[in-house]
Design a protein around this nucleic acid. Structure first.
Lengths: 250, 250
DNA sequence: CGCTCAGTTGAAGCATTTCAATTCTTGTGG
DNA sequence: CCACAAGAATTGAAATGCTTCAACTGAGCG
């Protein structure tokens, strides 16, 4: 896993490509300018790069502008649990700007662009731009929701329900940021990643996915996932489709 | 499960009994007065009371002043996952003051005292008292950490490790708020609660606990838990004892 | 004293893991 | 364009951990 190195500044916040997505709340020019002042630069990485490492302090926190990444923790003997995937618009590393060190690691799955903000200046957001501070908390609370639901899934759903739930979850989140076209999403990760997210073994994950696709509930081939009938998959997954999904843009 | 009803105002924030605990950061008089102004009252409940219900909006958010509670989610068919226990000093219901509705429920385990704050006034904290707003985010980030670790536990630890981990986790959190005397804590919940937190069946949880106590790693009888050797239990649990545990008082 | 709820136990069944191959993809160099 | 290597997906079979079922024991309470 290669180590991240800082890079150049390319995308001005005023033209942030994420602003067009419906999920994000409308944001004022004052707020945008404030973010722009805070932005330290961009980090452009290849796939498979460790952006933040469990146990290390971080000088920066990030917003993922482009690409996919994932958060994970490991046990000494190598067992890995992926706690969540990171999609464009997600904030990464707030936790280490509140605590001393990261409690989890973050790796990229694809080439990625991250906006970087100096950890030391987070306080300015709270001091001078309460609406953005509120958004930070909003994002933390939303991440908490995702983790709660995932805990329910791993703890109480069986393999089929759990896999169905997770795929749908990813699909809907990807849809929110405009990554779904004609019912298809790019899934830039392996079955092993999914297994580590579900808390299942790779082999059993494979067999479970096979069952889902045999039943016609989804297709996942060559890195693309297609869901013919979202409601049908939600039924299997015991997924509540009526959750609000609007969120702030940071 | 009985329904909560508002109650009288007894404990002035200036004399908040939690201020003495080392875990909480020192807090200024200005901040205390601000909290005091915001406090709507107290909620005193008996054990087994639902304070917040999944799917419902909430007019209030709460700080638990005294007692134990737990957060949980359920599947339609009744399967329940306890996502975390709530101890004195914990904030409950921030999520619903950011989103429209609660994504999980909260029940008390013991008689409890909760300080209530009107949902509608959370914004004032961000607007007028950034240091407290920061604390709210801090608490959310800390809760996120707990959930991450728990996800690792359920997903990747086996039953013995998972139970050992969870008991130790509860023990240390209880210790932080002064609930441990001579290595003993009150555990005001049943093995079924623990099973629902671990994502295991009741029967298997029982057998797993038995193994832990036979091995001399802990004793849990008549509602009291005693851990003779914290380091030994941590070893089994693959628990990292060197995590920072200081936190802000809200 | 008898009821109820929580904890305990053994046995059978099932879901999931582990082990061990094999096949399919993808990318690379000749 | 083909051969080859490396990573990813797939498969079957055996082993294990966890769940479920069904009973029984113990503790607390009126």
């Amino acid at each position: 896993m290669s180590q991240a190195t800082p890079y150049t500044y390319d995308v001005p916040c005023q033209q942030c490509p994420l602003r067009v997505c419906e999920v994000f709340r409308p944001i004022g020019d004052g707020e945008i300018d404030f973010i722009a002042k805070l932005k330290a630069g961009e980090l452009r990485t290849g796939p498979g790069t460790t952006v933040l490492r469990e146990g290390s302090p971080s000088e920066h926190l990030f917003t993922l502008l482009e690409g996919w990444a994932f958060r994970y923790k490991t046990l000494e003997d190598g067992r890995r649990q992926i706690t969540s995937f990171v999609l464009p618009g997600d904030l990464v590393g707030i936790q280490s700007s509140m605590q001393a060190e990261m409690d989890h690691s973050v790796d990229t799955l694809t080439a990625a662009v991250l906006c970087t903000f100096p950890r030391g200046r987070v306080w300015e957001v709270y001091k001078h731009c309460p609406s953005l501070a509120f958004d930070v908390t909003w994002l933390a609370a939303t991440q908490e929701m995702i983790l709660n639901e995932n805990l329910l899934s791993i703890g109480r759903r069986n393999a089929v329900e759990c896999a169905a739930y997770y795929i749908l979850h990813l699909y809907l989140r990807a849809e929110d940021v405009g990554l779904v076209t004609e019912g298809k999403v790019r899934f830039p990760f392996t079955q092993e990643h999914l297994a580590d997210a579900l808390g299942l073994s790779l082999v059993h994950t494979n067999k479970t996915l096979k069952r889902l696709s045999t039943r016609g509930l989804m297709q996942w081939e060559h890195g693309w996932c297609f869901i013919p009938d979202v409601a049908a998959l939600a039924e299997i997954a015991k997924f509540d489709l009526n959750q609000p999904r609007k969120r702030p843009l940071l």
